[in-house]
Amino acid sequence: MTMTPTTLKVNGKDVRMTLDPRTTLLDALREHLHLTGTKKGCDHGQCGACTVIVEGRRINSCLTLALMHDGDEIATIEGLGSADKMHPMQQAFVTHDGYQCGYCTPGQICSAVAVLEEIEAGIPSHVTEDLNKVAYSDAEVRERMSGNICRCAAYPNIIAAIRDVAEGDKA
């Protein structure tokens, strides 16, 4: 096994690491960069807790290798905002109690931010009635957020938080 140098652009900063090629992007963030905001719920693409935004798209960081992302721009929950300076989506989750235990939360928030962009970009979903007319609705958000499981099941509150931000964006 050869340790492999890898550079990631995490939350705007270049970070160089030398990694076991087996290291997932998730473990690179959590164990090497100590960015533990991104969570490991299943490590198999089955829960969404590890969602981060890579090159503008949300993905499950548990099912990709860090070295496959050499040079890529990675946005994590820590990059969106901090406890003192929350991103509007983070604030909306607090206001609407869009969580309970908090473990799925960073993944939900990263996903939510990306979902609004996907709708904006006109990317259809399973519930889009006319594939050529993509518009915001609660049903759209529920479907698109379904890759983020919340066992505490703050679901309606999460939808309310996202709706708030979406409406704010329009205003």
Partner: peptide, 21 residues
């Protein structure tokens, strides 16, 4: 009242058991 631990949780800054670097 909003959860007082909320800002830490939404920022990913609340440390869970496997994250005690």
């Amino acid at each position: 009242v909003d959860r007082i631990d909320g800002p830490l949780k939404v920022a990913g800054a609340a440390p869970y058991a496997y994250e005690r670097h």
